[in-house]
Design a protein around this nucleic acid. Structure first.
Lengths: 340, 340
DNA sequence: TTGAAAGCGGTACCAT
DNA sequence: ATGGTACCGCTTTCAA
């Protein structure tokens, strides 16, 4: 038996026109029930597989969606991908994933590859190296719709989906306050990094202000070691703080290890709250309270928006969607007894 | 300015033939230096982007490689992907990733999608639901090369890259023995799951046998809670064991929490060794010794093999490549003083 | 309802 | 070294 049938092969064997075969296979309305059945059955019998390349070339639609991420090796981006993929599959699209490793050069190259591969659109979380959004706008204007997710760029002309870092931080800080902690220190990201750390700082500041508490902020790169260093410093202060809200789980973990070394009871004596819901936060001892960034939801929403746009570009209204993160409360920040 | 130039557009404006343009752009040898320069410069000027779809349709080579994974949401598969992607990019290929969520049905659908998308080959880590390898062999025989990675299927006719679970387990157990632990229990995966747990068990058995020690195995699904349950049982035994080698990091973590609750000094009094090098193993207290499965290396090797095959299928010799895992020794299994 | 034929954007063969 | 052109497999008018 022939292995790779084309619609021409089918047409010839069935003594009909290729165009009829094409129509029958995609349930075109103006085709008789009888021929449709016959063709579909035959196609199934000979294991016909449509050549998506040829179809894409002719129709201008490939069903491919390009995804540009800084890295898929981090939990956050892996979850993002999961959301993206589920929606894409559900609606009959395939995704092509690329990683930039935070290099703008590589990102440009990846986008180029995706366009040459005929993607119908691109979802991107921009690399830290990107200078501004002019490049992306140019791509869009050249015919490839490009939507932002997670790392958004403020521009009303481009669609964006992200999370509200402000309210994540606000809710986390509020929770610490509700547990009776008063001297709450914030580990913040250094200013020259992305805007999101500023938003987290703002959320902290707002919550502290509303509660009439004094702000106390330490800036760093928020790595594990930074958290340790900060915590050691805090313990040496004459007036010791009683909680830390860290803009990163890693720094919170560093703080945790120092607290444990000093025999300080986490939760009861000292509250600890992280940010990002890294998998380890669930497993450390005690489990670390943190902010979940709803990565999967962001992916789902962004992909869904892009596909909606592609369905009818003219009706689409561009906008920015901000999902609210969820605070995950674990024992590291529970001081009061829980009343059931 | 025109936005999307084709080689025909370029040919017309430069008053030459499309075929010449095509040749010039890909550095075909039989073309004059002068025309080549001229065409390449012009192409760059008008921002020509090759249509990979058209090229693939005509030449039969798309440069796409399909990747089928059970999930990209796990650290192991994320690293696998990283290795795959790096090699693919380096050699001018793009990858299309799909996930099966361990469903054989979805896996078949994904493979079908990839073939229709014109992939030159497929890399697959088979879903647990796959009954046997007949499906994959059929795909291969129909013209799409399919190489296995990680979860391999024993068949000399298909190329495979995986790790040696046996020696990972063997080395881990040997390390525990070298640290002076004598009553070492193995947490093993239930028999009806994949072969890899059997291999790990075999490695443990071998090392114990060689050292003249008595085997002691507990079977379960190796989740966190299983580890806790097992550990509680072990502590209640009249003759308490002094180490655990767990075939999963999660179960090892469960054991760790029980040990800590009981005030038993991990490392000094009780050795603990996991498997998989999950990210949290580095951050728990104490850090957990574990076996790294070299995911990135597996990905690199498998992709590299597939591309080599595609370059010259006739010269290729199919085979099975087994990479040796690396044991990562951390404080959870260090009893003796380290001599510097 | 069905057929014929052009064409998507490249590639590759056959000429020259 | 360059040009002309058929063709990859499918979609999409236009015609019947």
């Amino acid at each position: 038996m022939k292995v790779n049938y084309t619609i021409h092969d089918i047409a010839k064997e069935l003594r009909i026109a290729p165009s009829t075969v094409s129509r029958a296979l995609k349930d075109h309305p103006r085709i008789s029930e009888k021929t449709r059945k016959e063709i579909q059955q035959f196609a199934k019998k000979v294991n016909y597989k449509q050549n998506a390349l040829a179809s894409a070339l002719r129709s201008g639609k490939s069903g491919f969606i390009g995804v540009c991420l800084p890295s898929i090796n981090r939990n956050f981006f892996a979850n993002l991908t999961k959301g993206i993929e589920e929606v894409a599959n559900k609606r009959g699209n395939s995704i092509i994933i690329t990683q930039s490793n935070e290099s703008f050069e590589l990102e440009k190259k990846n986008i180029d590859t995706l366009i040459r591969a005929g993607v119908d659109g691109i979802l991107i979380s921009v690399s830290k190296g990107a200078p501004d959004n002019s490049f992306y706008k140019e791509i869009f204007s050249q015919g490839t719709p490009i939507f932002f997710l997670d790392r958004t760029i403020n521009d009303s002309g481009i669609n964006q989906t992200g999370i509200d870092d402000f309210s994540g931080a606000y809710l986390a800080t509020q929770h610490l306050i509700s547990q009776g902690y008063k001297k709450i220190v914030h580990f913040a990201g250094t200013n020259n990094v992305a805007i999101l750390y500023k938003e987290r700082l703002r959320g902290y500041t707002q919550a502290m202000g509303e509660a009439g508490l004094k702000e106390d902020v330490i800036f760093s790169n928020l790595q594990l070691q930074d958290g340790k260093d900060h915590m050691i410093e805090l313990l040496n202060r004459p007036e010791r703080p009683d909680a830390v809200f860290s803009a990163s789980d890693y720094a919170a973990l560093g703080a945790m290890s120092v607290l444990k070394e000093n025999g300080i009871k986490i939760g009861k004596e000292f509250g600890l709250f992280g940010f990002a819901n890294e998998p380890f936060t669930e497993f450390v001892d005690p489990p670390l309270s943190t902010v979940d960034q709803k990565a999967k939801n962001i992916g789902e929403h962004a992909m869904s928006s892009l596909l909606t746009y592609l369905d009818s570009p003219n009706d689409y209204i561009f906008g920015k969607t901000i999902l609210t993160p969820e605070i995950i409360i674990r024992s590291s920040s529970i001081r009061k007894k829980i009343l059931l």
